[in-house]
């Protein structure tokens, strides 16, 4: 099942961002990734803002998965 595989991948990638295993990603967590990813802090902030749905300052696993799903072209969590 592609969706299950997708969600599993999303979960793994989420954990790469949520190093402290808080269960959510903040803008600060995102900006810390600049040492590991070839993106600027501005780009990481832009990614955060485009993934975040409700503008509460936290990126949840659901929001993250939806963003990845949209990127890959698979509809998740309808």
């Amino acid at each position: 099942d592609v969706q299950v595989e997708m969600l599993e991948k999303a979960r793994e990638l989420f954990q790469l961002c949520d190093k402290e295993e808080k269960g959510f990603i903040t803008k600060l967590d995102m900006q810390r990734l600049q040492s590991e990813l070839p993106l600027t802090p501005e780009q990481l902030e832009a990614v955060f803002e485009s993934l975040e749905q409700d503008n509460n300052g936290y990126l949840t696993p659901v929001e993250f998965s939806m963003g990845l799903g949209k990127f890959i072209g698979i509809e998740l969590y309808q």
Binding site: L13, L16, P38, L39, V47, E49, F71
Partner: peptide, 29 residues
């Protein structure tokens, strides 16, 4: 205008982000 900024994000940066994460994931055992 924050909306313009968000629009400028576009898929390029997101693609870069996810691709980098994916290659990082597969790069480590």
């Amino acid at each position: 205008d924050p909306n313009m900024k968000a629009g400028a994000t576009s898929e390029g940066v997101l693609a870069n982000f996810f691709n980098s994460l994916l290659s990082k994931k597969t790069g480590s055992p």
